[in-house]
Design a protein around this nucleic acid. Structure first.
Length: 479
DNA sequence: TGAAATGTTGGGGCG
DNA sequence: ACGCCCCAACATTTC
């Protein structure tokens, strides 16, 4: 019987796993491999929150494999020599993996593929990470879409033709005991100081946790998703982003679950499912854009924006990062991020707008902070999101779309519950004042135990003044 | 996936 | 009864 390596990367699941399925379909005995090589990620090595997640996800995958009679072989990189070593040790004649689309991944993978083949091994990559390959979705005149709506119209018409998710194999062949594996603990993915309590209490990394979350989402949340996904105080989002990022769940699995939920009769389910599937579309769009425009991790897609003279980073950036801007909904979001490794999407837009359009700091500072702190940090989605906010990306928010954190707070957190949860020092303010404490009457502040400038900061920026200044600078770009 | 400024309309108070 | 003003509510335009 022949042997194949299945090289796991960010597809840490056994269900709907095209690389694994292809190796098994070819009749190979499978040796599952994870190669730890962060230096091959270029400028975008995973941050501490992502590494925490990866540690637990690898452990989960390892357990899943052991329950099926196999085990995960973990090695340190560099990747190509490591895979060649493993092929020699195991007698493997083929290597299978699922494609990734970050610039550094593509560069590394093409070197790996060529190296494996020139060593006489079969090397095959598969699509397990996206609904559609970036080169499969083109405008009528050829070339990539830069606007979401026509992009998604094109994709949506083809959803029916997608393959259905495949079940996980029930059993796998044992991996010979002679093949050594590095303990996952030795990869140094966990933080040295224990700051991860918040993460542990909010998340269950691994495919089992992903499926549980998907089940909860389609059973309980999806019916109200269209509206409640905009309310940061309510558990109205899918919370699937980190699971999708690490491939503990495939987008096809998420799509299939949403579509079968929408067959149910509960009111709102259809609309909620459509709305969620559209979000999967944004995930696709982000990956396709990064594939076609790999420089956009650092440079604006719309090159006119290179001429902006952003403020140099300094104390305002630190205040933003640490959640002490004096603007409650912004600070609540930044503290949610720090404590849980995640931030509600509505609030991500609000804090991003403040950074780029009121503080006038380069979107890269925000992108980098999110990259380092989010458990769902994803180069494609992060790049799209920040360029969208700054107005320099594909299908971008127009430069004059500037969020007012007070109005956004009043509209999407009308009771102030989200602010109260993350800013306990404001917890006793009434809803009518909680989003603009600086405008509250002294007696109200006193009764709530708030001393501006002491127990909670005054705003670090004048919203109206900075808005007008930003508008002027952006308008000058157009000329 | 915006906000603010400006324009329009219509009800009600008032002389 | 009528014109006038005020202003909220809503719509449109502009940045």
């Amino acid at each position: 019987m022949s042997t194949a390596l299945v090289w796991f990367r960010r597809d840490l699941r056994l269900e709907d796993q095209p690389a694994l399925a292809a190796a098994l379909a070819a009749g190979h005995r499978v040796v599952p491999v994870y190669v730890h090589a962060p230096e091959e990620d270029g400028d975008w090595t995973p941050g501490a929150a992502s590494r925490w997640w990866l540690h637990h996800s690898l452990q989960a995958l390892s357990g899943e494999l052991e329950r099926r009679g196999s085990r995960l072989i973990v090695r340190r990189g560099p990747t190509l020599p490591t895979l060649l070593d493993l092929a020699r040790e195991s007698g493997a004649t083929a290597v299978h993996w699922n494609r990734l689309y970050e610039p550094a991944s593509i560069a590394r993978d093409s070197v790996v593929k060529a190296g494996l083949r020139s060593a006489g091994l079969a090397a095959d990559s598969h699509n397990g990470h996206l609904l559609f390959e970036p080169w499969q979705v083109e405008t009528g005149s050829g070339g990539p879409y830069k606007v979401f709506t026509p992009f998604w119209r094109n994709c949506a018409a083809r959803l029916d033709a997608l393959p259905l998710p495949q079940a996980a194999p029930a059993r796998l062949a044992a991996v010979p005991a002679t093949i050594a594996s590095t303990p996952i603990e030795s990869l140094g993915l966990l933080p040295r100081i224990r700051w991860d309590d918040g993460l542990r209490s909010h998340w269950s990394p691994g495919a089992a946790g992903a499926l549980r979350q998907l089940g909860t989402f389609v059973d309980e949340t999806i019916a109200g998703y269209a509206k409640s996904r905009d309310v940061p105080a309510s558990p109205g989002t899918s919370r699937l982003s980190p699971h999708l990022h690490f491939g503990e769940l495939s987008p096809r699995q998420a799509l299939a679950a949403a579509r079968s939920a929408s067959l149910a009769t509960r009111s709102g389910t259809q609309q909620g499912a459509d709305s969620f599937i559209r979000e999967l579309g944004w995930r696709e769009f982000a990956h396709h854009l990064l594939y076609h425009f790999p420089a956009t991790t650092d440079l604006p897609l719309d090159r006119r924006f290179e001429r902006l003279d952003w403020q140099p980073p300094g104390e305002p950036l630190r205040a933003w990062q640490q959640g002490r801007t004096g603007l409650p909904i912004v600070d609540a979001g930044m503290r949610e991020l720090w404590h849980t490794g995640w931030m509600h999407n509505r609030v991500r837009m609000i804090v991003a707008s403040l950074l780029t359009k009121n503080l006038f700091l380069h979107w890269r500072h925000g992108a980098r902070w999110f990259w380092d702190t989010l458990v769902d940090a994803d180069l494609a989605s992060n790049t799209l999101g920040w360029q969208w906010t700054a107005g320099c990306g594909a299908d971008a928010a127009p430069y004059y779309r500037i969020f007012n954190p007070v109005l956004q707070g009043e509209r999407f957190d009308p009771g102030g519950d989200y602010v109260r949860r993350w800013i306990p020092e404001l917890a006793h303010l009434p809803a009518s004042d909680i989003h603009a404490p600086w405008a509250a009457k002294p007696a109200v502040l006193a009764a709530a135990g708030v001393t501006l400038g002491d127990s909670y900061p005054r705003p670090i920026v004048d919203l109206k003044e900075s808005r007008d200044a930003a508008l002027a600078r952006f308008a000058a770009l157009k000329a």
